[in-house]
């Protein structure tokens, strides 16, 4: 009986986890001379329904820009993706008890945790929502970061082209880990 319980335990723990490896993150910089957008749809995200732990892993080289030169500058000059290839969010959904994965509907969630970009970690809070449809959770959120908080410097010559703050939109379609 103990053996049966022990073998069922990992399944029970996995049943509480929802993941995606195809999460989407977009960001936009709106400056007087230029609007720059980038998209990444290879983002890892996991949600533990028991603890509320919510983690995200992002490869910076996976962001795609309309212009090749922008993509080069982003990787080489701003986020230095050779030195800092990954960004991450490690945090919690503080009101995880409000999210019932067995009931279809939309729930507003509070997210709190540490965002690491360019090797710098900052605490952030954001509001998001989860739409539950037949056990699949579609999480979305929008928030803003300030580039200087993450030691990303914009040269004077590019100040008209790149905003000091960046608006980030995320969308994660999470499915139960089997």
């Amino acid at each position: 009986m103990i053996l049966a319980f022990a073998s069922a335990l990992p399944l029970a723990l996995n049943a509480q986890k929802f993941i995606t490896k195809n999460g989407q993150i977009s960001f936009v910089s709106v400056a007087p001379l230029e609007t720059i957008e980038a998209h990444n749809d290879q983002v890892n995200a996991s949600l533990d329904m028991a603890s509320g732990d919510f983690n995200v892993k992002v490869l910076m080289q996976s962001f795609e820009f309309k212009k090749s030169l922008m993509q080069e500058h982003f990787n080489d000059n701003y986020v230095e993706s050779d030195k800092y290839p990954n960004s991450s969010f490690v945090g919690k959904i503080t009101n995880i008890r409000d999210l019932d994965t067995t009931k279809d509907g939309t729930v507003t969630v509070q997210v709190k945790g540490n965002l690491t970009i360019h090797g710098v970690t900052k605490s952030i809070d954001a509001v998001g929502s989860f739409q539950v449809t037949e056990g699949t959770l579609v999480g979305t959120s929008k928030f803003t970061i300030t580039l200087s908080d993450y030691n990303i410097a914009i040269p004077m010559v590019s100040s008209g082209n790149i905003s000091k703050t960046i608006d980030i939109t995320v969308k994660f379609t999470l499915t139960k880990l089997s």
Partner: peptide, 14 residues
């Protein structure tokens, strides 16, 4: 494909 790197679980080619 273009190699974006390793994200602790997978190597990503785009």
């Amino acid at each position: 494909g273009f190699c974006s790197g390793y994200n602790d679980t997978d190597i990503i080619l785009t």
